[in-house]
């Protein structure tokens, strides 16, 4: 387990240089900084089209301090596969990380993600999930929650949500976990555990986005934490055949200890049009998800 003391040493280290092009309150910048802490700033990164292609600022400068390839939208798992294989042949070690949005992962790049996972490529894949195509202006993606407003679902999204992390487990990869930018210690531990395992590692990082979800930009961490506290986002870890609920989510196995879902929804403009029935449906969805994950902890024990 990583300790705060240990992280103090990064207090003054600029793992991401200042002056990025991220919006105020951007969750991706937080997440990427934690990622860099977890790996002590020593990794190579592959980034498909998305906000993270813009965040580092403009060439010939970059705010990222690790070797980075920005690549076409659907290609990052395949690019990382080739990168990793070539590095192995050259005898170069160290993590190769894909840092990709939900659109890149759940939708357009899903085939190449699935291919890399099934081949068990030795890479860490981080799905930084802000629940829509943010870079192009908040369009609905496969992970946008049902009923959420986006610019392509102006009356609320009518489809469900693709559970990419569970689908990844079905690829028989060694490591799959969910994480949240509000729980950096949990996320850092997971990245480090992933880095110690050979094969395909997938971490699904929940990343609430102020402009995309329509909440004030000083609420990013609060919204992310509420997602966990209301049970809307469950932190779990699947490690080589064993699935466990992660410490921050353990209290919320007990439905009675979860905060009311309304607390999470009401902070976000994208849910402002919801009716009472809509909210009941969302609640039922959360219960079903918990049932499923808890059953999976029984199966993968």
């Amino acid at each position: 387990m990583v300790t705060i003391n240990e992280l103090h040493k990064y207090g003054r280290t600029k793992l991401i240089m200042p002056g990025t092009a991220a919006c105020p309150g951007c969750p991706l910048q937080l997440g990427m900084r934690y990622l860099a802490m977890a790996l002590d700033g020593k990794f190579a990164m592959v980034i498909p089209a998305g906000c993270s292609s813009v965040i580092p600022g403009t060439a010939p400068y970059t705010a990222f301090t690790v070797p980075t390839m920005h690549v076409p939208f659907a290609s990052s798992p395949a690019v990382a596969s080739g990168l990793r294989r070539a590095l192995r042949i050259r005898g170069v070690d160290g993590p190769v990380v894909v840092w990709a949005g939900d659109g890149a992962s759940a939708d357009i790049g899903f085939a190449s993600l699935s291919g890399a996972a099934y081949r068990n490529e030795d890479i860490i894949y981080i799905l930084a999930d802000n629940e829509a195509y943010m870079n192009t202006g908040i369009q609905a993606s496969g992970t946008t929650p049902p009923k959420a407003w986006t610019t392509t679902s102006p009356r609320g999204k009518t489809e469900g949500r693709k559970d990419v992390s569970l689908i990844m487990i079905m690829h028989n990869v060694p490591y799959v976990a969910t994480a949240s930018i509000a729980y950096p210690m949990d996320f850092i531990d997971k990245v480090r555990r992933a880095a110690s395992i050979r094969g395909f590692k997938f971490i699904h990082l929940h990343a609430p986005c102020p402009p995309g979800w329509k909440f004030p930009d000083n609420y990013t961490v609060r919204v992310a934490r509420l997602a966990v506290e209301t049970g809307m986002w469950i932190l779990w870890e699947y490690n080589q055949g064993k699935l466990t609920i992660s410490p921050p989510s353990i209290p919320y196995k007990d439905k009675g200890r979860r905060k009311p879902i309304e607390e999470y929804l009401k902070l976000q403009g994208r849910f402002s049009h919801l009716t009472k029935e809509d909210i009941e449906e969302i609640k039922a969805g959360v219960d079903r998800q918990w049932d499923l994950i808890l059953k999976l902890t029984e199966i993968y024990r």
Partner: peptide, 20 residues
């Protein structure tokens, strides 16, 4: 053994970037 030509080129491209 990739799942498409798109990934075939993307992966050899990644390999070339890593010096192969």
């Amino acid at each position: 053994r990739v799942e498409s030509e798109f990934s075939a080129l993307a992966s050899v491209y990644g390999a070339a970037a890593a010096g192969a």
